[in-house]
């Protein structure tokens, strides 16, 4: 990505932290504009930032529709990944049998590069479903593995305390399962929250990547209107300003997702977790 991320907007404390990146960013844009104008670089090689901005405005109807499509895929993929990942992580944490039999498959899904799977998915599924499946596929694993790690990271002494105060007197299987559910709710769920949120932040970025990769794989095959498809299309038509405009929108989408998830992280953990104290956005 050529365009640098603008500085985060909401950050208390040192104003330099906001001002400095903004100044550097503005300077980089100005230098870019100057070089293009002085050297007279044609727009099909490198468009000036002003031209990209103008393209954004003139092509807005087309680009906004694409943006919406990509956003929809990304967010739906992320939501499904969170639902599936958390559900599976809970199941795996409740039963070793389930963990041993299913976890390896999740790893295989993860380590297979999604770009290699995308064409296959496009053969088996309608295109929009295939794109969604790609976004889901890449976002699923970080949620699963981080949630699992979190669920297992309860203080051992706390679990003993739980056994001392909370375990049922009877030793029947149902009672033991009930105690596990109770431990899950009272201890594992809150203990897993920081790791889950870290996984969510990774998954947010990855689901966007998954959506883009799938759109690109699908784009050459025909219909499609996501931002990544616009990029491929603009490349074929040598409409470089529009390519840059679509790229800017993609970058902004990624930044927006990251900021929202970081903010969520901060809100949920600020009272008790060390990570939420250090300004690390």
């Amino acid at each position: 990505m050529t365009a640098a991320a603008p500085g985060p907007t909401r950050r208390q404390g040192d104003p330099l932290k906001i001002v400095l990146p903004l100044v550097v960013f503005a300077a980089a844009i100005a230098a870019w504009e100057a070089v293009v104008r002085i050297e007279g670089i044609p727009p099909y090689i490198l468009p000036a930032p002003s031209l990209i901005a103008r393209t954004l405005v003139t092509d807005w109807p087309l680009l906004s529709a694409s943006l919406l499509t990509t956003l929809e895929t990304t967010i739906t993929g992320l939501v499904l990944a969170v639902c599936g990942g958390v559900l599976l992580a809970v199941l795996l944490s409740l039963s070793k049998v389930v963990e041993y039999s299913l976890y390896p498959f999740a790893v295989v899904l993860q380590v297979t590069p999604v770009i290699a799977v995308a064409p296959l998915l496009l053969i088996y599924m309608p295109q929009d479903v295939a794109v969604l499946a790609c976004a889901w596929l890449v976002a699923f694993f970080p949620v699963l593995s981080n949630t699992m790690l979190g669920l297992q990271s309860v203080d051992r002494n706390l679990m003993e305390l739980f056994e001392l105060y909370g375990a049922p007197a009877s030793r029947s299987a149902a009672a033991r399962f009930g105690a596990r559910l109770k431990a899950l709710w009272y201890l594992r769920r809150p203990a897993a929250l920081p790791a889950f949120l870290a996984g969510l932040r990774i998954a947010g970025g990855l689901s966007l990547i998954g959506a883009v990769v799938a759109e690109m794989a699908a784009g050459s095959a025909g219909a499609g209107s996501g931002l990544a498809y616009r990029i491929i299309e603009s490349q074929y038509r040598l409409n470089i300003p529009r390519l840059f405009a679509a790229l800017v929108l993609l970058a902004l989408t990624g930044i927006g997702l990251f900021l929202i998830l970081a903010w969520l992280n901060h809100i949920l953990l600020r009272r008790w977790h060390e990570s939420a104290l250090a300004p690390d956005i």
Binding site: D155, N157, L164, A191, W272, H273
Partner: peptide, 11 residues
């Protein structure tokens, strides 16, 4: 029961 660590729930 009191452990060597306070083992409080940080949340």
């Amino acid at each position: 029961f009191v452990f060597q660590d306070p083992t409080l729930m940080p949340w």
